[in-house]
Amino acid sequence: MGNQKQITDFTVQRNIGLGGDFVQLHLHSDCELPAIFPGQFVQVHVPSSIHGWLRIPISIHDADPASGQLKLLVQKVGKGSEYLASRREGEKVNLVLPLGKGFFIPEIDLKKEVLETHRAPYRALLVGGGCGLAPLYYLASKLKEKGFPFDILVGARNKERLVLANELAQLGPTGICTEDGSVGIKGLVTEHPLWKGVDYTHVYTCGPTPMMRAVAAKAHEMKAVCEVSLENTMACGLGACLCCVTASAEGHHLCVCTEGPVFKADTLGW
């Protein structure tokens, strides 16, 4: 399987409400799909309307290219995502995929230097909240498939806004934090006891920016490699328009859609 990008029609097989604003879409394509790595994203076509006409970027929640299966987790936050979340069984969705660079996985040779600079045995912590858990799910399933050890930390404001926690718990040890203590540990993800006692070599995080910043600081303390997944607004998704940039640690502009969306936290200027 190559890394070629393509424009492909998918058929909605299932639309599952996960509570709150969240919908899980199970998609299928008869076309052969390229290799898809955790942390990559798709650009979804939405019909042009007075509200918009650009595609919307959605991270890949799960994929099995060999069987044409793809899952997306959609949070209804705007007209585009509301359209996507309302697609029913049998309806078509047009995607450009796979886009961007994903998370580092040992033996998947995307970012070789990370492992080479790190001598301790690999052990990962995956930390996310809300829609940020979507790519972490795919990452966890790949790590599990390859037999790499990892733990998961899920954060939410409260029980009602908690999403994917049960699904993630089936892949690996999963800790939960809620700000009001309605489920799991009361507090922020950085306050969970999982951080104590285990020396993680890699921390992966995706979710609200303040959470990712706090997680990156915590990972830095324990000298773990930290990767964060950004979701800047973008137009092309192909590295052409340069609308989605973020500042690097040196003050240069990095293109989120092609140099990311996953970045090593210490390369960013935040």
Binding site: T233, M234, C241, L242, C243, C244, V245, H252
Partner: peptide
Amino acid sequence: EGNPYPRM
């Protein structure tokens, strides 16, 4: 370097 984000 162009302008700061947001640019779109």
